[in-house]
């Protein structure tokens, strides 16, 4: 386990800007989705997005291994007193772990905020029937789904940029953003929305509580939090 951690830290340090890019993507997507959401049930799309995280983790893991080949460092890795599968698995674990943690982190803050409002509202019957077990289960499922979506999106965009250059890359980015959001605006991305059990009342109370300043507040908080997290991570790695 210790060795997995060292490989993980090494990969993480090398990709810190990728990590912050991820944070921005999460923020942008969530802010956008708040204003276009409704309670549609796109089950197939949801399944597709959950499976996308595995596809993403696989592709990115392979990419990390390819980078080691390209930079000749694979010879160094193979010469280390570590079983080959360990460092190979650590690459996949790195991608999966970072993407999942980031998206769940975002969900957590967002949901806590939403729940705070929900619990302050006066729908007593909703409060009494609220199951935290279901809530956390849904939280996990939708964190996975969100990671999958972002992973797939970033993977597609970066591949287009690499293959076709800046202009086509940017145009593809713009059109993909439009297509994704066109389909996803009906795909409820916030956990509270998914608790259809509580129906529209919850959603209404949530939506009405979301004003611009709240979103800005969350955004700034998230950024500070991410930087702090990253700083702690780096410090921890130095120990």
């Amino acid at each position: 386990m210790r060795q997995y951690w060292f490989f993980f830290v090494k990969d993480f340090k090398e990709r810190k800007w990728w990590f912050f890019g991820f944070i921005f993507a999460i923020l942008a997507f969530n802010i956008w989705s708040i204003f276009f959401d409704n309670v549609g049930k796109k089950i197939l799309l949801n399944i597709f997005l959950i499976s996308a995280i595995f596809v993403y983790v696989f592709i990115q893991g392979i990419n990390l291994v390819r980078t080691e080949w390209r930079e000749n460092t694979v010879e160094f890795l193979l010469s280390l007193p570590v079983k080959k599968y360990k460092w190979l698995l650590s690459k996949f674990a790195f991608v999966g772990f970072v993407s999942f943690i980031l998206s769940s982190l975002w969900y957590l803050l967002f949901t806590v905020y939403a729940l705070r409002d929900f619990l302050n509202y006066h729908q007593i019957h909703l409060k009494t029937s609220f199951s935290f077990w279901i809530f956390w289960w849904l939280y996990l499922v939708f964190s996975c789904k969100f990671s999958g979506f972002l992973g797939l999106f970033i993977q597609t965009i970066s591949s287009i940029f690499k293959r076709f250059g800046k202009l086509i890359g940017f145009l593809s980015f713009a059109s993909l953003v439009f297509i994704f959001f066109y389909f996803l605006r009906v795909l409820d991305l916030n956990i509270v929305f998914h608790v259809s059990f509580y129906s529209k009342k919850v959603i209404n109370c949530f939506i009405t509580s979301c004003s611009w300043w709240v979103i800005l507040y969350i955004m700034v908080f998230m950024l500070i939090f991410s930087f702090l997290l990253f700083y702690l991570f780096e410090k921890f790695a130095e120990l």
């Binding site: 090494k10 090398e14 930079e71 000749n72 460092t73 010879e75 160094f76 010469s79 280390l80 007193p81 570590v82 079983k83």
Partner: peptide, 21 residues
């Protein structure tokens, strides 16, 4: 094996270390 490799250090001709470190 990995246990034996703890006692062997290999220095290849190529640049094998992480360039960003």
């Amino acid at each position: 094996t990995e246990k034996a490799k703890l006692n062997i250090f290999y220095v290849p001709e190529k640049d094998i270390y992480y360039q960003n470190m």
